[in-house]
Design a protein around this nucleic acid. Structure first.
Lengths: 338, 338
DNA sequence: CTGTTAGCGCATTCAT
DNA sequence: ATGAATGCGCTAACAG
């Protein structure tokens, strides 16, 4: 490997200018003669020059990166958001750095630290477990946006759908289909002082029942942990209660899948014996048997919005809380009664 | 924000030593008096000092990072590999940088370029579309490992299962269950001069039939694109052929899910009318109706191996091609005939 | 508009 | 064993 790394100086020489001029055309800052500019550009492509990002960052104090911390690379739903972020960052001078918190707070903490060490200019959390005070502390130093998790003390920095409304509408749909005994599979609703999105879904469910003059039966509300397995367990518990129910509203698709399997194991058909609805519209929801009725969050758009928001924050512009509309996706997992 | 960023110099002052000494204890290099070492360490934690990675990298020429390029953050299978990589890197001085190629060559190319610009010390490709010559060129400059994609001219740098054997075993299993007319849903088998993993699966399928004295019926082999939708289309095509088949072997779970839906739409029951097997053992495979028989690749272990391998390459140690065993996961989607 | 110069924060010789 | 000095490659005043 004889080819020494080429630097800005090589370009300067080949273009017969000073390194500052080279820097100028590269950073497209103040005016430079078209002539010199072309010469520089030519030299750059001729020598296939790539600026050293470390030197750049060290000198400028900016890393031109945005750290994205998600909780699960394997989830199709979060994946949509990541796609959106990618899209939203396209064309901006910033490039994303990804990390996966794996739903474990220590790992998330590490990821955050790594990003902070890398001097990211902005942060996007997709979900997350970190205590809200920590988030606030970070936000004070670094522009921060949260998607899919609502931070009460950082409301403007959050991007989400109206989970209450969505939960209400979904329950309302089941009611309209003639269901009266609607079970609900939720998940831990509070974390530190953060009210999670599933809590809002639950609240919507409760309100819809109330508005319909139906007494909410606490025995029909069971708690899972958002994973498939817990959905199956939830159904087992539900069945143990011996309380009748004709429909199940799972707070996310994963748990709905688990519930689906448990029902199958018990010989209960969907939707003939029990109707089932989920939440998130994961990719596979359309391919289950039967295809699952669920709620779609505009994840890609939300990701784009998140990207746009950090960019704004970085540029000192203010951001306002953004609520996106969700959409009821009606498929075949719900039976019309009577 | 009065607190100016604290640097190595602040530590040096507080510990009454020179910055070089501080640097020494931090880099755990040559001997330093226990006394001074402790003083430095104390100052470090007292001031909560975090070295500037850019300065470090600029001065040392190393970034202490490993770039991981995957093709789909949303796939549970790839997710296992990423988990493994995380595990394998744990404790090493290197931290991973993730990027998602989104199955698009241009994006993958960009991600690679970004990593190269960031001077990653090593690269791990999880799947990928880049032309093999490009990969070879990159490998010449930067330690590189490929997981889930076999590069013929970079064999030692690849980590995979024996896809031929797995395809053979899976087909053999169907034969043992009494099936004679076994359809196969595959995918594009060649990309540039790379023989893809699904091609090996197909070869195993073909050989198993041959060994069983069964003539392979080309009409029973259809091509998809690894996505769910294509599995559904494949079944439609299969049905159009009017050729009888009692089982379908899809080259991956995603296509199996699609096939499952198409069968459902056609009123065909699984496994009563048609048996179905997939490949990859994605998380949801266990939660479909019925649960899907498939092949599990030890993705986490493969990820760990990949991490270990890059680390070795970085340290100048040689690596050898690694083939992992796969495991047949028998579930309820296959009917024993007669 | 353009060249010169001084750091950015740290690793690393080179002396001592 | 330790400190002083040099430079990594680039940006950003600063002069001109």
């Amino acid at each position: 490997m004889s080819s020494r790394k080429i630097t800005i100086e090589d370009i300067a020489q080949k273009a017969n200018v000073s390194i500052s001029t080279v820097s100028r055309v590269l950073r497209k800052s103040s005016g430079v003669t078209a002539e010199k500019r072309d010469a520089v550009l030519q030299a750059v492509s001729a020598l296939d020059y790539r600026p050293n990002v470390f030197a750049q960052s060290l000198a400028s104090g900016q890393s031109m990166t945005i750290g994205v911390i998600t909780q699960n690379f394997g989830s199709p739903f979060y994946d949509g958001i990541l796609q959106g972020i990618l899209l939203g960052l396209e064309g901006s001078e910033y490039s994303p750095l990804f990390a996966d918190g794996r739903w474990q707070e220590t790992i998330e903490q590490q990821a955050l630290q790594t990003f902070l060490d890398r001097r990211v200019d902005g942060l996007i959390f997709v979900g997350g477990q970190l205590p809200e005070p920590d988030m606030v502390a970070v936000a004070r130093k670094t522009p921060l946006i949260s998607v899919g998790r609502t931070l009460t003390s950082l409301a403007e920095n959050c991007i989400h759908i109206d989970n209450f409304q969505a939960g209400y509408d979904l329950t309302r749909y089941l009611l309209d289909m003639g269901h009266r005994n609607i079970a609900h599979i939720t998940a831990r609703m509070h974390y530190q002082n953060t009210v999670s999105d599933v809590a809002q879904r639950y609240a919507g469910y409760a309100r819809a029942l109330q508005d319909a003059g139906i007494m909410l039966d606490p025995g029909l509300v069971v708690e899972g942990n958002l994973l498939q397995q817990s959905g199956a367990l939830a159904v087992e518990m539900l069945l143990l209660q011996k309380r009748p129910f004709s429909a199940i509203f799972a707070a996310n698709d994963q748990m709905a899948f688990g519930a689906r399997l448990a029902l199958y194991r018990r010989g209960l058909r969907v939707p003939d014996d029990v109707s089932l609805v989920g939440f998130d519209d994961e990719m596979t929801a359309a391919f289950t048997i039967p295809p699952l009725t669920t709620v779609r969050q505009p994840s890609v758009e939300m990701g784009q919005a998140a990207a746009a928001a950090v960019l704004n924050l970085i540029n000192g512009k203010p951001v306002t809380q953004q609520t996106f509309p969700s959409q009821l996706i009606v498929r075949e997992s719900v039976l019309r009664l009577r």
